[in-house]
Each structure stands twice: as structure tokens, then as C-alpha cells.
Amino acid sequence: MKKTEADVGEFVAGVSPAKRQRDAETMVALLREVTGREPEMWGTIVGFGSCHYRYPTGTEGDVPIAAFSPRRQATTVYLLDTGAHADRLGKLGPHETGVGCLYIKDLEEIDADVLREIVAEDYRRVIEGDTGSAVFTVTD
């Protein structure tokens, strides 16, 4: 995955439907607060900071430290492993999960403080290198 030169504000302004655009604006503010970093575009993903990862298998690449994407059906929040947040996810409100993705259809229906805790914990884990079998190295 690579950063692009696209403008985050323009990207968010073009998000539809309107509810997803509203949620994207909220997520930019929340991730900016949690990470202390400015957003950058990684294709259609809004990322904060960057890191290089390498798995024991040799698979490696570059990704944002914290990120989300306003998809048509739901806002996707990218995490290391949703299973690590089982207790908090039970308090979050309506959502679905994949292994490393949290899908939220409406941010107004979830507990923003719980979401902030989940994102902050994942961010901390990457910064501190507490990521399980993969090695993550912060690059900016």
C-alpha cells in the first residue's frame, strides 16, 4: 500500500451518502486526536502515520499506523486484530467485525469513547511494537 498525493478534505467532501461523509469527518477528528498526526490518503483509505510491517513468512509492506475508509455500506476502521478488543467491542454499539476490520454503519449509534479506546490501544501497540508475530517499524 502506498500513500497518494490526494487531498483528504476533497476526498471526504466527495464521500456519499451524506451519513458516511458525516462519519468520515468525525473519524478524521477522532483519529487526529488519538494519534496527534495529520491524515494522509492511501488510495481510498485515510491513514495517520505510517509503518513498515514484516511477518515471519517474509510478507512485508507499508501501511498507516491508524486508518479508516468510508465505504458505501459502512465505515471501515482498520485494526491489528479485532479479537484483542472483545470486551470493548461488547460495549461499542452496533457493528460488525472481520479479523482486522471493524465495520460501523452509523457512528451516531456507537459509543465514541469506546471507539476512541479501541483505536488508541491499537495505535499504542504499533508504536510500542506489541503486535504479535509481525514486526512493525514506524516510518513517520
Rank of each mutant, 00 (worst) to 15 (best):
K2I: 03
K2C: 08
K3T: 12
T4F: 01
E5N: 15
V8L: 12
V8C: 06
V8S: 04
G9A: 14
G9N: 12
G9I: 06
G9M: 08
F11Y: 14
F11L: 08
V12T: 10
G14E: 07
S16M: 12
S16T: 12
S16H: 13
A18H: 07
K19N: 02
K19H: 02
R20Q: 09
R22M: 06
R22H: 07
D23H: 04
A24Q: 02
T26M: 08
T26D: 00
M27Y: 04
A29C: 04
R32I: 02
R32A: 07
E33N: 10
V34F: 05
V34K: 04
T35I: 05
G36V: 02
R37V: 03
R37P: 01
P39H: 04
M41H: 03
M41P: 03
W42Q: 03
I45E: 07
G47K: 00
G47E: 01
F48E: 05
F48D: 05
G49M: 01
R54E: 14
Y55C: 05
Y55K: 00
P56C: 12
P56A: 11
G58P: 01
T59W: 09
T59Y: 09
G61V: 07
D62P: 00
D62Q: 06
V63M: 06
V63C: 08
P64C: 01
P64N: 01
I65Y: 01
I65C: 00
A66N: 02
A66F: 01
A67L: 01
A67K: 00
F68M: 02
F68S: 06
S69M: 07
S69H: 07
P70W: 01
R71Y: 02
R71K: 14
R71N: 06
R72C: 03
Q73R: 15
Q73L: 04
Q73G: 00
A74F: 15
T75N: 10
T75M: 14
T76S: 13
T76I: 08
V77Q: 09
Y78T: 05
Y78C: 05
L80T: 09
L80H: 05
D81A: 15
D81R: 15
D81K: 15
G83M: 10
G83A: 14
G83V: 08
G83I: 08
H85C: 06
A86N: 10
D87T: 12
R88H: 12
R88L: 15
G90R: 14
K91V: 07
K91Q: 15
K91G: 06
L92P: 03
L92T: 04
G93I: 09
G93R: 05
G93Q: 09
P94Y: 11
E96W: 13
E96N: 14
T97K: 09
G100L: 08
G100A: 14
Y103A: 04
K105T: 15
D106T: 11
E108W: 13
E108R: 10
E108H: 08
E109N: 11
D111I: 08
D111Y: 10
A112Y: 13
A112V: 14
R116M: 09
E117T: 12
E117G: 08
E117A: 15
E117N: 11
A120E: 13
D122H: 14
D122G: 13
D122L: 06
Y123S: 07
R124F: 08
I127L: 14
E128M: 06
E128P: 07
G129N: 11
G129W: 10
T131C: 12
T131Y: 03
S133P: 04
A134W: 09
A134F: 10
A134R: 09
V135Q: 13
F136Q: 06
V138N: 06
V138P: 07
D140E: 14
D140T: 11
D140L: 07
